[in-house]
C-alpha cells in the first residue's frame, strides 16, 4: 500500500500540495499574522517586506493574512458543497442503480439534461433567485454537484448488485437497505474518493469565479475570488497582489486535480 502510494507520483504530489493547503487553511483559522480585516492606513498598497510578507491591499490589509483566511472560506464552501452532493448523490445513485426501473430512467434523463449544462450558468440561476452569500453559494453548488455524483454512484451500484457477495448477502436474508449501505457502499470507496477530489476541484473553481464576479461570498468574509477582482484594479502598481492570490487558487485546484487523477489510477 505504502509502496504503491509512493510509486504513484501524481497521487503523491497531489496529496502533498493539498495537505499543505489544508494545513494553511486550518492554521489560518487560529492564527494569521494580522487581523485579515484590520486596515492600516499607513500601509496602503505596501510592497513586499518583512513586516508584510506579501504586501498590503488598497485598504492596508495584510494580504498574507487575507489569503490564509480566504483559503479557509473557500475550503469551507467546497466542503459543504461536496458534502451535500455526496450525501444526496449517494442516496439517489444507490436507489436508482440498485432498483432500476422507471424512476431510474426518469431521473437519469433529468440528470442528463442538467449535466449537459455549464454548471456556472445553473449556479447563476440559483444565485439570482436566492441572493448571494456564503451559504447560498454552498447550497447552489452542492445541489449542482448531486447529478454528476448520483450518476457515478448509480454505475457502481449497477455493477455490484449482481456480484456474488451481494447475492450471498441476499440469500442470508439481508434487507435491501442493508445490502446497499453496509455491503455495496464500502466497495465503492475508490471511485468515491476520486470523484470527491474532482468535486473539490470544481467547487473551488466555481466559488472563486462567482466571488470574482461579486455574486459569491460577500464581505466581510474574505474570499480568494473577491480578492482577485480587487487586485485587478491595482494590477499595474502591485502585480504581486494578484499573483499571490491567484497562485493560491491555482495550487488548490492543482492539488485536488492531481489527487483525483492519482486516485483514479490507483483504483
Amino acid at each position: 500500500m505504502k509502496k504503491r502510494f509512493m510509486k504513484n507520483r501524481r497521487l503523491f504530489i497531489g496529496a502533498v500540495i493539498t495537505g499543505i493547503m489544508v494545513l494553511l487553511a486550518v492554521a489560518g483559522v487560529f492564527f494569521t499574522p494580522y487581523d485579515p480585516n484590520a486596515m492600516d492606513t499607513s500601509a496602503k498598497l505596501a510592497g513586499i517586506s518583512l513586516k508584510h510578507l506579501m504586501g498590503c491591499d488598497n485598504f492596508g490589509r495584510d494580504i498574507l493574512s487575507r489569503i490564509l483566511s480566504g483559503l479557509g472560506t473557500t475550503m469551507l464552501v467546497a466542503l459543504g458543497t461536496v458534502f451535500i452532493g455526496v450525501f444526496f448523490g449517494t442516496i439517489i445513485g444507490a436507489f436508482t442503480g440498485y432498483y432500476g426501473g422507471i424512476p431510474d430512467e426518469v431521473l437519469m434523463r433529468f440528470n442528463d439534461a442538467v449535466l449537459a449544462f455549464p454548471s456556472l450558468l445553473l449556479a447563476l440561476v440559483f444565485i439570482s433567485v436566492m441572493g448571494a452569500g456564503k451559504l447560498n453559494v454552498t447550497i447552489a453548488l452542492g445541489i449542482l454537484f448531486i447529478p454528476s455524483y448520483a450518476r457515478i454512484m448509480r454505475g457502481e451500484f449497477l455493477r455490484c448488485k449482481n456480484l456474488d457477495y451481494v447475492r450471498s448477502a441476499r440469500l442470508m436474508g439481508a434487507s435491501d437497505i442493508r445490502i446497499m449501505f453496509v455491503h455495496i457502499l464500502p466497495n465503492t470507496v475508490q471511485v468515491m474518493l476520486s470523484t470527491i477530489a474532482i468535486g473539490f476541484n470544481n467547487a473551488v473553481l466555481a466559488e472563486a469565479g462567482m466571488s470574482y464576479l461579486g455574486i459569491g461570498v460577500q464581505p466581510p468574509d474574505s474570499s480568494l475570488g473577491r480578492m482577485l477582482s480587487e487586485a485587478q484594479s491595482y494590477l499595474f502598481i502591485r502585480p504581486g497582489y494578484a499573483v499571490c492570490t491567484g497562485t493560491a487558487i491555482v495550487l488548490l485546484i492543482l492539488g485536488f486535480a492531481m489527487l483525483s487523477e492519482g486516485l483514479e489510477k490507483n483504483a
Binding site: 469565479g209 482577485l228 485587478q232 502585480p239 491567484g246 491555482v250 492543482l254 486535480a257
Partner: peptide
C-alpha cells in the same frame, strides 16, 4: 499542461492583461 489546466480562465486573463496590456 497539468499546471495550465489548473489556472482559472479569469486569472489567465489577468496575467495576459498584465503582460500584453500593461
Amino acid at each position: 499542461n497539468q499546471i495550465t489546466m489548473s489556472i482559472p480562465s479569469f486569472f489567465v486573463g489577468m496575467l495576459l492583461t498584465y503582460l500584453f496590456g500593461l
